[in-house]
Design a protein around this nucleic acid. Structure first.
Length: 679
DNA sequence: GAGCACTGC
């Protein structure tokens, strides 16, 4: 090995990924190639018409093996006659937009006319739009206004292999609609070879294989497992840099912290090697990175230099970087999981699936033949990795999904036709919570309030809170709180070199009462600044998150009328805001006991998150937005409440007796007091 | 005294 005093990793070459084509084809050539190869098993359909649909798939699906299933296709002509439309869903907004733009261009029409897209906050369609690209969540919402999809003649679900929550729900609903609408054509496009499952689910639908274009990628494994994969990563990158021909490197790590560490180590070692090696540009990329920093990865690599992009899973599907020839894959990713017994979410580092590893490897073969170095053994790949990632529907809470299905008239959720059913307990907890919120009656039927809640594109507790703001005349403030809570990523930006400044800035937003009021405060001040990005920069607030909050707030405000809530402000009376929040979140409460916080109903031990404004306050009664398991069971976004409010907002759920405080005399001094008592 | 993978309505 050429690197002085540096350990190296020995690789073994295993296999060449199968590739259908050895070189790229122009889009035109690809289409005709596909048309030529299409040989549908049942001969009722004509290949040329199918190829026309295939050409409308997203480029990422077209660039790999894919399957198309067609079910119930008795008619074969005139899909867009009599005002009928074709829907094509994508898991991501950008994909919906870019595929629509591409197809509009190829058809020579103006985007938004015959071909358009429809995503949240943005509708680029018109009366004339026959071919409509949309996010899968958007089509799911359309079921509310058109449960039989009557205006669609064809529905195509693209990137089905990703198995997003929305895609999975769509599967069940579409299968149902197709049963009583035999003329509806349904296509499912997936980039995996696991066609049997999809086909069986859709009543043994025929499968079509369409070869895509991709360059071969050689896969290398380590001979022995690596104990420290971060260190192994850094060594491998330098090894590739020194020994391999030109071409940029893409490294997959699990999160921001790891990426920052790896980038520092790489830069540090390059500096020490100095002119012994050629220039290596080290660039991080993850979703929370400010946009201007993100943009740097797309700049072309200067001649003579090599670029190494250190990325999260964002580079696996969401964005494509030109010029990548080498992929380095330690085989891990962060994955969300949900425990329905405790209602707790956690984010843990887990080995990625074979499907995910292959997707990563494929990133090396987009512009030329590439190489993928896996930091695990071939044996581990064969025997230890799961075939596919557990579908999202089995790893997440389903409150709003259950509410949506209920409002579509699906009563027996336990027997809903899921491709992969979620855990029984997850459905049960969702039903229980919806009942407690008054969205369902004791027969499990939707109530008037439940029907309204389903109209709002937020979690049930959040929609309940919005409905309650009518009673407390504070919808202006509650809308803001709701929008800020919807922005899942942290609002506060903490650059490593200015931690103290950033934390001071955060504390300056603190208001008595708790984190929800802090969020309200941040938004209000930002609005007063004229929604300025400069203001965000000065206050260490993420501009992107704020802009998103504004979008969400505007959308929710537009829906207020539908759910019969009037716009009104509390005029600084934050008790009303806190009561309205309690009306939605009474299910999520904790009380201070001698042994710390316990949730009121389940008696679980929980902790205030150290980033909370109430971390040092320790009020007696708390409400939390969410429970997250990291190093401890943390309550994130907490609000101080009074126990009497619980009786006021949820008398059906709480009894006065269980809210008595027999231990109040034994509470530690200076804690356990409500702010009102402290004056 | 901790740490937020990625999406989406």
């Amino acid at each position: 090995m050429l690197l002085p005093r540096s350990p190296s990793i020995s690789w073994c070459w295993r296999k060449r990924r199968p590739s259908s084509l050895s070189g790229p084809l122009s889009s035109r050539a690809t289409r005709s190639h596909q048309a030529h190869r299409l040989q549908p098993r049942p001969s009722r359909r004509s290949p040329s018409r199918l190829s026309a649909v295939a050409s409308q798939c997203s480029p990422s699906v077209r660039s790999s093996w894919q399957l198309l299933l067609i079910i119930r296709s008795s008619s074969s002509r005139g899909y867009t006659k009599k005002g009928m439309k074709i829907a094509c869903t994508q898991p991501r907004r950008v994909a919906a937009m870019s595929v629509a733009a591409r197809v509009a261009r190829e058809m020579g029409v103006k985007l938004g006319n015959e071909v358009g897209y429809s995503i949240r906050f943005e509708d680029c369609t018109s009366e004339r739009t026959a071919l409509r690209y949309m996010t899968d969540g958007m089509l799911l919402r359309e079921f509310l206004s058109e449960p039989d999809l009557a205006s669609y003649s064809v529905v195509m679900v693209d990137e089905a292999h990703e198995r997003t929550l929305h895609t999975d729900i769509l599967f069940g609903l579409i299968k149902d609609v197709a049963r009583f609408r035999p003329e509806l054509k349904v296509l499912v496009a997936s980039a995996t070879l696991d066609t049997a499952r999809f086909s069986t689910f859709f009543d043994d639908a025929p499968v079509f294989r369409i070869p895509g274009r991709r360059f071969p990628v050689d896969i290398f494994y380590t001979k022995a497992p690596e104990a420290d994969y971060l260190e192994a990563c850094v060594v491998s990158v330098l090894q590739i840099h020194v020994t391999q021909p030109p071409g940029d490197i893409l490294v997959f790590l699990t999160g921001q912290e790891e990426i920052e560490a790896a980038c520092e180590m790489l830069q540090d070692r390059c500096r020490r090697l100095g002119s012994k090696i050629r220039e290596l540009l080290v660039l991080p990329i993850y979703a929370n990175l400010p946009s201007d920093m993100q943009a740097r990865i797309f700049q072309p690599t200067p001649p003579g230099a090599r670029k190494v992009v250190v990325a999260t899973n964002i580079a696996e599907t969401s964005l494509t970087i030109e010029g990548i020839i080498y992929v380095l894959d330690p085989g891990f990713c962060k994955q969300k999981s949900y425990n329905p017994r405790t209602g707790m979410e956690s984010l843990t580092i887990t080995p990625c699936s074979k499907a995910s590893a292959n997707q990563r490897a494929g990133r090396a073969g987009r512009v030329a033949a590439g190489k993928c170095f896996r930091l695990y053994t071939a044996w581990a790949y064969q025997h230890e990795l799961e075939e596919t990632t557990v579908p999202e529907i089995q790893r997440t809470s389903l409150g709003n999904v259950v509410l949506l299905l209920k409002s579509l008239g699906i009563h027996d959720l336990m027997h809903f036709d899921f491709l992969d059913p979620p855990p029984y307990e997850t459905l049960l907890l969702a039903l229980e919570q919806l009942y407690a919120l008054g969205a369902l009656n004791h027969l499990g039927e939707l109530t008037t309030s439940g029907r309204k809640m389903a109209e709002l594109p937020v979690d049930p507790m959040l929609s309940k809170m919005i409905l309650a703001s009518e009673k407390y005349s504070c919808s202006e403030e509650i809308l803001t709180v709701a929008a800020m809570l919807c922005v899942n990523s942290s609002i506060f930006y903490r650059p490593k070199d200015k931690l103290v400044h950033a934390d001071n800035a955060r504390v300056n937003f603190f208001l008595p009462g708790g984190d929800h009021l802090v969020l309200l405060n941040v938004y209000t001040q930002w609005a007063e600044s004229g929604y300025s990005s400069q203001w965000c920069y000065e206050n260490f607030v993420q501009f992107r998150s704020m802009r998103r909050a504004r979008d969400v707030r505007e959308q929710l405000e537009g829906l207020l009328e539908r759910v019969e809530v009037g716009l009104s402000s509390c005029q600084g009376d934050y008790i009303r805001v806190r009561k309205a929040i309690t009306a939605g979140y009474f299910y999520h409460t904790a009380r201070l006991t001698r042994s710390g916080y316990r949730t009121v109903k389940q008696r679980q031990t929980v902790f205030i998150h150290p980033n909370s404004s109430l971390f040092e306050e320790q009020p007696r009664w708390l409400l939390y937005h969410e429970l997250v398991l990291t190093t401890k069971e943390f309550m994130r976004q907490v609000l101080e409440i009074e126990s009497s409010w619980l009786l006021e907002v949820a008398p059906h759920y709480y009894k006065a007796k269980e809210l008595e405080d027999p231990h109040s005399k034994k509470m530690p001094k200076k804690t356990g007091k409500t702010r009102e008592e402290l004056g």
